[in-house]
Write a protein that binds this DNA or RNA. Structure first.
Lengths: 226, 226
DNA sequence: ATGTGTGAATCGCTTCACAGCT
DNA sequence: AGCTGTGAAGCGATTCACACAT
């Protein structure tokens, strides 16, 4: 069979896309499997994974099947092996070099967020333009001057930028970030960023989540009457 | 017509649910319309709303149609009116009393997050169990002792709790929060909370977003080769 | 007996396309 | 002419159900 270039997803024939919802669940499975491995659990079934997170077992199996066959019929999945596989799928088998832009309260919090470090996201840089913040310590990092963004990004070999500046400054900062050898951006500013097509961008919006919450609070017991 | 009890969504007959994706977009439309009103723009079409956010005009119209008919054929939507309507739909026509639990870096950042205040989320309370943090100032608030959670929640008439404590403490804190007259919970701890069915809970997970980002970085140019 | 992997069926969201209002 | 509001069509995600492996 010579060349065994297994494409990650060979389920359907011509270029079948994995749903984003599947990727999000993969990340949730990963977190769960992590804790199971830490607890010394060796084996787990799709049904157990599902019920622990509120999904069906079929959902779990279908999600995993996009990437391969990691279980054994009649037995379930080996936690250690599954953890390793999901890490590879999500890109967590690798240390990512991350810069946080903006040393306000959100930026500082993100720079010290332990979940990031635990999953291979190494925060190597935090930048701001406020002379009052430059030079301050944030965890083990010193806030650097954003004027030196390009040089600092190159020196630290940054892969990912987290934008944590006010909305009005976000596009300006982004325009400079995209000239570096960055691969992706996670944007916490509540605005639509324009980026070149070779980059990946994800939007995080905490106020949006709160608004979805209030919608559901308002519309909770709508099914109980009328 | 006498009793004009218009159910919000009367589009389909028996109890048609609004997709969560629609709610999320409503929140995005709201943010956009807000800036337009601030700029003095009076009228806008579904096509303009759509292209500014990367949706189709049909998507925008369909989303709005779940809740009523807010536009005028041939003209579009009045921004001021649309803003008012969406605010009412999402529950933003109302001041929500919010408590942040956990005065670590994430909790402190959330307590001061200007987007919350701008959208009617009034942070009235920040709590922690660490004697080193109790009594400290976070913005205009003083960190209170979590031992007094029930009393402080009652005094401040808290509607919504934001959980920003480490995962291991999240369920314990939640078990106390759910005994108050709270309506909803926004959970930043990376864990599955168990809550009584009368409450609404939303999960926020920043590490998950970063993992989805790295997945897409890895799988970006998958379609260009093979 | 148990639990995976997966085509087929189902469900629900998005897009189309056009009638109807301004 | 221009743009909304909305059934119907299209399409993508979830669930079903069962062959197959242990």
């Amino acid at each position: 069979m010579g060349r065994k270039k297994i494409r990650h997803y060979d389920s359907d024939s011509p270029l079948m896309q994995v749903p984003e919802s599947t990727i999000r669940r993969m990340s949730m499975y990963y977190r769960l499997i992590e804790t199971l491995v830490a607890k010394g659990v060796d084996q787990i079934s799709s049904d157990e994974i599902g019920t622990m997170q509120g999904f069906t077992s079929a959902q779990v199996r279908k999600d995993l099947s996009f990437f391969g066959s990691f279980g054994r019929r009649g037995l379930g999945y080996n936690t250690r092996e599954l953890k390793r596989q999901i890490a590879a799928i999500l890109g967590l088998d690798h240390i990512w070099h991350v810069a946080v832009i903006g040393a306000g309260s959100i930026g500082s919090a993100l720079a010290q967020y332990p979940e990031f470090a635990d999953h291979g996201f190494q925060i190597r840089l935090i930048l701001d333009n406020d002379p009052g913040k430059i030079g301050r310590q944030v965890g083990s990092l010193t806030v650097k001057d954003i004027a030196r963004l390009e040089a600092e990004f190159a020196a630290a070999a940054i892969d990912i930028a987290i934008i944590a500046v006010p909305a009005r400054a976000a596009q300006l900062v982004t325009d400079r970030v995209v000239t570096t050898s960055i691969r992706g951006i996670l944007n916490f500013a509540p605005c639509q960023l324009i980026i070149p097509p070779h980059l990946v961008m994800r939007q995080e919006n905490m106020a949006l989540e709160l608004e979805v919450l209030t919608y559901f609070i308002r519309n909770k017991n709508r099914d109980s009457i009328d």
